Amino acid sequence: MVDLINILATIELFSDEQSRKTPFKSGYRPLFNFPGATTKISGSIKLIDMDSFSPGSKGDVEISFIKGMIDDSYFKSGVKFTFDEGGSVLGEGWIK
């Protein structure tokens, strides 16, 4: 069994020209960038109280990461991060 780190976060999905054009559902797995981390980390987003998350939206989600991919110190309340797909930053968030 894989050990997971689950966090609650508020995220915002950008709606500019370079951003994602379609909504996503629970299970979406972008790459996350934490300031100071030397690698990006994949995480799975679980939506809370919504069926889909559209460009321009902001809301609370649960994100699951595989433990050990980056140091646990990055997963503290108030830490800000960005997330991307294919090298384009799609949004930002912060840990609750």
Rank of each mutant, 00 (worst) to 15 (best):
P30G: 05
F14R: 05
G56S: 11
I45G: 04
I95P: 13
V2W: 07
E92Q: 05
I11K: 01
Y74E: 08
E12G: 03
D16S: 04
F75T: 08
E62V: 10
I45Q: 00
R20F: 08
G78Q: 00
V2I: 11
D49G: 10
S88V: 10
D51S: 09
S64L: 03
M69C: 12
A37T: 09
V2D: 08
K67A: 12
D3F: 12
I11M: 10
I41T: 06
F34W: 09
T39W: 05
S44H: 12
I70V: 15
R29E: 09
T39A: 06
S44Y: 08
T22G: 12
D84Q: 05
S44L: 13
G56M: 14
S42W: 03
F83Y: 00
S42T: 04
L47R: 07
M69Y: 11
D84P: 01
D16C: 05
I11P: 02
G27P: 09
L13I: 05
T39C: 02
I45V: 00
F32K: 02
F65L: 05
F81I: 11
P55V: 02
N6W: 13
Y28F: 02
R20I: 01
W94L: 14
G91T: 06
D71S: 15
F83V: 05
G93E: 03
V2N: 10
M1G: 06
D16R: 02
F34K: 08
G86H: 13
